[in-house]
Write a protein that binds this DNA or RNA. Structure first.
Lengths: 155, 155
DNA sequence: TCTGACTAGTCAGCCCAGTTGACTATCTGC
DNA sequence: GCAGATAGTCAACTGGGCTGACTAGTCAGA
């Protein structure tokens, strides 16, 4: 059963993530929602967790240039998912704030990701899924220690 | 401990894969090797597992157009990792064959991916890693059933 | 056996999300 | 108050994907 080829696990991680991404995308289409890309989802999540974040903060977290982050922000702002507000103390900076629409979308996305989790749990059992969750966390904590980390996969 | 936010697991999968990809990339640089992209690795793996494959086969597996697959193949052929040979029976087609250099690179990549696995195993234990492996496989088998699947993540 | 539909692969041109580089406006430490 | 750092934007480029149009070869049927 466990004829595990050395080096196979990372590939399986990627394939699994791809499968879940496909599911999310299909569900969004099914619901008639704009299928934002995962990169957008990361923006939402980051802003929800870090109120007062700026474009530069976001760029650092996503590990892209500030120009690229700025472009994404412009796009999401045009679509009404977030707003730029003037920074209270720094005249150069703008803080990024999710709109109600943005928070609602984030909530929906979480629910749809959770569908994939439930699907997985149905196959392997909820306790095993909890174990996987803990194991992933343990690995990331070990690799990155305290300081936070790159969210976006790179190809 | 298991205050698992619903929908968090897919993100953790992506972050873990990203961490392992970063590790691979860093090791390749360290060894003075050309840091081919993961997409190239998928080509190598597919060709190693499917001798006699053509560009069209590859395109189907990677879920890209044949034009795109052809471009990647040209690149890898220019770098000496694979060769195009005339198809024995079909005058239109070419079969793709890994060179010794290509097989050597694939072997190295597997070793480097395995380093990440070992690192993970050191944190959570080998038995837990085996469990994760089995759980990933179980999910993919459930989602895709028999017919094989998309390897390449999509953004 | 010829012909029409299909298939393998390439060429050319476009698109999009990222990049680098140059710039303005503002902030901060000496 | 000035020099250097920082937030953000504009412009031009790149790379890896795409569509569309094409050539060359295959194959099935009348």
């Amino acid at each position: 059963m466990d004829d595990r080829r050395p080096g196979e696990v990372p590939l399986l991680l990627a394939m699994t993530f791809r499968a879940m991404t496909d599911h999310l995308h299909a569900r969004l289409v099914e619901l008639g929602r704009e299928p934002l890309r995962p990169a957008h989802g990361y923006v939402f999540r980051y802003l929800a967790d870090h109120p007062g974040a700026t474009v530069v903060d976001l760029a650092a977290r996503l590990d892209v240039t500030k120009q690229s982050a700025s472009k994404t922000v412009t796009e999401l702002a045009d679509w009404g998912y977030l707003e730029r507000r003037s920074h209270p103390t720094d005249g150069r900076a703008q803080i990024l704030v999710l709109t109600e629409r943005g928070r609602e979308y984030l909530h929906l996305a979480d629910e749809l990701w959770a569908e994939s989790e439930k699907q997985w749990a149905a196959v392997i059992g909820a306790d095993r899924l909890d174990a996987v969750h803990a194991d992933l966390r343990a690995y990331l904590d070990h690799v990155y220690g305290d300081h936070r980390i790159n969210i976006r996969p790179v190809w």
